[in-house]
Write a protein that binds this DNA or RNA. Structure first.
Lengths: 203, 203
DNA sequence: ATATATACATACACGAATGTTTGTATTCTT
DNA sequence: AAGAATACAAACATTCGTGTATGTATATAT
C-alpha cells in the first residue's frame, strides 16, 4: 500500500486504539493478539508495529487517553467547597457513574483496565504507575475532606484519610460491581439508589 | 517413575493446586504455563494432565476450594440477629478481612480470582458461575437487612436490596483496594478504621 | 524535480505453550 | 501370583504469537 498523509496516519493510529479496546474487552488483554487488533482496525500487524512498540505500548496509550479525561473531571469539582459538601460529593459520584454509564467506549475501556487485565509480567511496573495516579486522586479527595472538617461542615470523628479511604472504597466497589455484572445491576434502580443510601447515612 | 499410592496421588494433586496459586499470583492466570506450575510442584506436565483436564480445570478446582470456606463463614453468622445489628455486621466484615489478612494462602488465592485473571475466552462461563454464587451471598445479606428492618432495629428509608448493595460495594471495594496495593494500605491503620468509619456513619 | 523519509504490507524466523501419545514402574485387584 | 489399572515421565506434533527484516508506493522536504 501507499504512504498516507500525516492526518490519515493519525486516524489509523486512533483506529488501532479503538480496535484494541474492543479486542481487549472481548478476549482479555493477555489473550489478545496484535493480529486480531490489526484486523479489527482494518490494517495489518505492520501498521500496529509502526505506531506502537508492542502490546504494552498500546496499553499505555489507552491509559493515557482514558485517565486524563477522568482526572480532568475530578480536580475542578473538588477545588472548592459547596454549601452542602455531602450533596457536592454525591453529585460528583453520580456524574462520574453517569459518565461511565452513558459513554460505551469509556465503559469498555474502564472494564479493560479494571477487569480484563492482570497486572503481572510486563504490566507489573504499570501497576506502580497506576498506584501513583490513584494516590493522587486519593490525596485530592483527602484534602477536600480536611478542608470541609476545618470549616466545621462535617464532624471530625475520623481523620480525613480514613473518610477518604471509606469513600474511595465504596466508589470503586460500586464501579467494579457495575462493570463486572452488566446484566444484573441496573443503573437507575440499583446504582443511583445505593449512592443515595450511602450519602444519606453519612449526614 | 513409579506409580504412587492413592494418598500420595492426592498429595501431588494438592501440591499442583498450591503451586498453581503461586504461579497464577506471580504471572497472572493467562500468562502462566502448565509447565511452570508443574515445575513448581516438583512434577512434570504429565502429572498435571493426569489430574486436570487443562488450565481452566485447575482454576475451577481452586475456586471450589476457596469460596466454600468463605460461604461457610458467611452463612451461619447472618442467620440470627444480634442485639446490635450494626455491631454484628461490623464484626463480620472485620473478621472476614482479618481472615484474609492473616492467611497468606487465602490472600494470594483471592488476589488471583479478583485481580490476576481476566474472565474472558474460556473463562466467560466461569464468570456466570461466579455471578450466581455472588448473588447467593448478596441474597443472604439482603434477607438479613430485611429482617432487621422488620424488627425496627434499623430505619427503613431504603429497601433492603439497596442497603445490601451499598454494604456489598463497600466491602468488595475495600477488599480490592487492600489486595491491589499491598504496600500502600496497611491493615491496622487503614483497613480497620475505615470499616469503623463506615459503620459509625450508618447508625 | 529529485532524494529521502514515511506509512504501511508482506514474508520470515524463532520460541513457547498446548494437547496427545507412548513408555513404564508400581500398586491394586482377584 | 498374574493381569489390569494407575500415576506419572518423556517425547512428539502442531499451532500460534511475536519481533524483525524487507519491500514499496507515496508524501514531503529541498
Amino acid at each position: 500500500m501507499a504512504r498516507k498523509t500525516k492526518e490519515e496516519a493519525l486516524e489509523t493510529r486512533e483506529k488501532i486504539l479503538d480496535a484494541a479496546i474492543d479486542i481487549f474487552f472481548e478476549n482479555g488483554v493477555s489473550a489478545s493478539s496484535l493480529n486480531e487488533i490489526a484486523l479489527r482496525a482494518g490494517v495489518t500487524r505492520g501498521a500496529v508495529y509502526w505506531h506502537f512498540k508492542n502490546k504494552r505500548d498500546i496499553f499505555d496509550a489507552l491509559h493515557e487517553r482514558l485517565f486524563k479525561s477522568f482526572m480532568d473531571m475530578l480536580s475542578p469539582r473538588l477545588d472548592h467547597i459547596d454549601a452542602d459538601p455531602l450533596a457536592q460529593l454525591r453529585g460528583l459520584q453520580t456524574d462520574l457513574m453517569r459518565e461511565v454509564h452513558g459513554n460505551p467506549m469509556k465503559k469498555r475501556a474502564l472494564s479493560v483496565f479494571l477487569l480484563k487485565c492482570d497486572y503481572s509480567g510486563d504490566m507489573k511496573d504499570f501497576l506502580i504507575e497506576q498506584e501513583k495516579s490513584k494516590f493522587k486522586s486519593f490525596q485530592i479527595f483527602a484534602d477536600y475532606v480536611r478542608r470541609v472538617q476545618e470549616q466545621k461542615l462535617m464532624p471530625a470523628h475520623f481523620p480525613p484519610e480514613v473518610i477518604a479511604r471509606m469513600y474511595h472504597c465504596f466508589f470503586s466497589g460500586l464501579l467494579y460491581e457495575y462493570l463486572r455484572f452488566p446484566g444484573t445491576i441496573d443503573f437507575d434502580t440499583h446504582v443511583l439508589p445505593s449512592i443515595n443510601a450511602f450519602f444519606s447515612r453519612m449526614a
